[in-house]
Design a protein around this nucleic acid. Structure first.
Length: 542
RNA sequence: GCCUGUGUAGCUCAGUGGUAGAGCAGUGUCUUCAUAAGGCAUUGGUCGGAAGUUCGAUCCUUCCCACAGGCACCA
């Protein structure tokens, strides 16, 4: 297993794929394709367990009272769940298909798609890792106290609570002191419930992890995120504001949560998200043995799940005596017209719609590459970015239609119109020195940017080569002066232009694979002679 | 409430102790091989606000404002 191993986080299937996951998948895809000269294993998948999924499944069948106050009495959780689980299974199957469809929509090159509901592939690994952690003595049972809201069918926290309205003051005598809070959605006081959970001794490993992150044995990119994690790990008891992470709950009673992986040796408990979902990186990779030989080179994740990947996951691996991933790359979030995307605002951007919208009749891949390009160029790789149709159109016209598309058409037409030059001067080596230098410089810079995960800047650099090409052609004007004396010079100029285009395509291969192929295929050398096959417009102007 | 980060031209961002730069958009001009595309030139900024350190700050310090994120056992 000497493969370069790249993962995305696994997507939670309670909702349809949105553009945020598309961003992560596309970023990971570029890096995977860029490493293709080595052997690469690229994993993605879906996280399909948990109470939220169960609720989403019910909602999708139009059954559940969304936030209506209909408290389901006491019957919400327990028995008779076999039938329910079957329905949930149908739901997640359906959802997982939508995520898998991203592969063709965005031309992704993943090698495996892991689903946490896969009882044959995923469950045994999740349980094996659990056992290893248990054997290390890092799991213990503890009573968990929480505020349970019947309306939510879940534990709620302080931020879900609001002060009770004055009109209900009559009940004042009922409640104990300081208990004047009610659930903000359901206007009912939560119950204090105790339940027994398995806990993981996270605290045992925080020092070790802090060290490994500090010395980049576990790299976290970008720097700001690394510092954020180090801040979390640092214990400064003085001000009491930040204290190193506490042990985390690793299971839930199965009476409340049957939709998940059973805890080995304890039927009364179901694995909680960490123990279950994070192990996908091992189960999707052929199991513990493979991971031991070659752990992930890069995890691509969003900033919202940094804590789990940078602290809990390494702690689990240390406990299970398994190697840590080498790098965690953290991207930001995509805003929609400056606002957070949310269902209630109705501004969620659907990647499938985008691809369809920007694909032309003649070529649907133009839409795919246009979406890939926007995500990779407009969104700074490690930061938040903004999506709007206006920006998309602007990027498309300026960079793809006027920039790349026009340049390709320009060079190919030029080369095929003046092909007589080639009979005289058909040597591919015959490229101007300045052009060769610029090409080499661009390759160097772009590769450096990709290594640093600055994909947007890599594209910027590639586009500077296109710009250079336009300048070069304007300067050489190979279309005029066809007299004998300068035929040779024009031949070199056209060869040089073709070389620029060809190298742009090579550099773009990981970013816009389909467009790159089209360009490369239109430039053919036959018996030392250049044959140009003009293509249709790569990106028609909008 | 506590902690961290960000705030620079219409938009996206770069940048340095000595009074600011790029790309896109805008304007002018040249050009036709090209997708009314391209080249060149150019208009935009009291560098979030206030005070301080300094001969001098956009870059240093303090306070304030706005936004983002983290923590306060919420995944």
């Amino acid at each position: 297993m000497s493969k370069f191993y790249i993962t995305t986080s696994i997507a939670y299937v309670n909702a349809a794929p949105h553009i945020g996951f598309a961003l992560e998948a596309v970023q990971a895809d570029v890096v995977a394709r860029w490493h293709k000269q080595e052997e690469v294993f690229f994993l993605t998948g879906t996280d399909e367990h948990g109470a939220k999924i169960a609720r989403a499944a019910a909602a999708s069948r139009g059954e559940a009272p969304p936030k209506a106050s209909l408290a389901t009495g006491g019957s919400l959780a327990p028995k008779g769940r076999e039938a329910d689980n079957k329905l949930i299974k149908e739901f997640v199957d359906q959802q997982a298909e939508k995520f898998k469809a991203l592969k063709s929509a965005l031309n992704l090159s993943w090698d495996n798609f892991i689903r946490t509901s896969d009882q044959k592939v995923h469950w045994p690994v999740a349980q094996e890792v659990w056992k290893r952690i248990a054997e290390a003595g890092d799991l213990y049972k503890k009573t968990y106290q929480g505020l349970y809201c019947v309306g939510h069918e879940a534990f709620v926290t302080q931020k879900d609570l609001v002060a009770e309205t004055p009109t209900l003051e009559g009940r004042g005598s009922d409640r104990s002191a300081g208990d004047a809070l009610v659930c903000k959605d359901h206007k009912k006081a939560p119950e204090l419930i105790e339940e027994e959970n398995w806990f993981f001794k996270l605290s045992k490993y925080t020092k070790d992890i802090e060290l490994r992150i500090k010395n980049d044995e576990l790299r976290i990119i970008p720097e700001g995120r690394k510092n954020e994690v180090l801040g979390l790990l640092k214990d400064d008891p003085e001000d009491g504001s930040a204290s190193s992470p506490q042990d985390v709950s690793f299971s839930r009673p199965s009476k409340d949560l049957t939709w998940g992986v059973p805890v080995p040796g304890d039927d009364s408990q179901t694995m909680y998200v960490w123990a279950d979902a994070l192990t996908n990186y091992i189960s999707g990779y052929g199991g513990v043995k493979n991971w031991e030989k070659h752990p992930a080179d890069i995890h691509f994740i969003g900033k919202d799940i940094l804590r789990f990947h940078a602290i809990i996951w390494p702690a689990m691996l240390l406990s299970a005596k398994l190697p840590l991933p080498k790098t965690i790359f953290v991207h930001g979030h995509i805003l929609s017209d400056g606002q957070k995307m949310s269902k209630s605002l109705g501004n969620v951007v659907d990647p499938f719609e985008l691809v369809k919208k920007y694909g032309s009749a003649s070529s649907s891949q133009a839409g795919t590459d246009a979406v890939r390009y926007f995500l990779l160029r407009e969104i700074p790789s490690a930061e938040d970015g903004d999506f709007s149709y206006e920006k998309f159109t602007q990027r498309y016209n300026a960079d793809l239609a006027n920039g790349l598309g026009n340049f390709a058409a320009r060079v190919l037409t030029l080369a095929s119109n003046y092909s007589e030059y080639f009979t005289i001067h058909a040597n591919p080596q015959n490229v101007h020195e300045v052009v060769n230098d610029k090409i080499k410089e661009t390759q160097l810079l772009a590769n450096k940017k990709i290594t640093d995960f600055k994909l947007n800047e890599a594209l910027e650099i590639i586009w500077s080569l296109i710009h250079f090409g336009d300048q070069y052609i304007n300067e050489k004007k190979p279309w005029e002066r066809k007299d004998e004396k300068i035929i040779e010079a024009n031949g070199v100029a056209i060869h040089s232009s073709v070389a620029i285009l060809n190298n742009v395509a090579i550099l773009l291969q990981p970013f816009l694979p389909d467009t790159a192929d089209k360009i490369t295929k239109s430039i053919v050398w036959e018996e030392g002679r250049l044959e140009i096959q003009k293509t249709e417009n790569l990106f028609p102007r909008l």
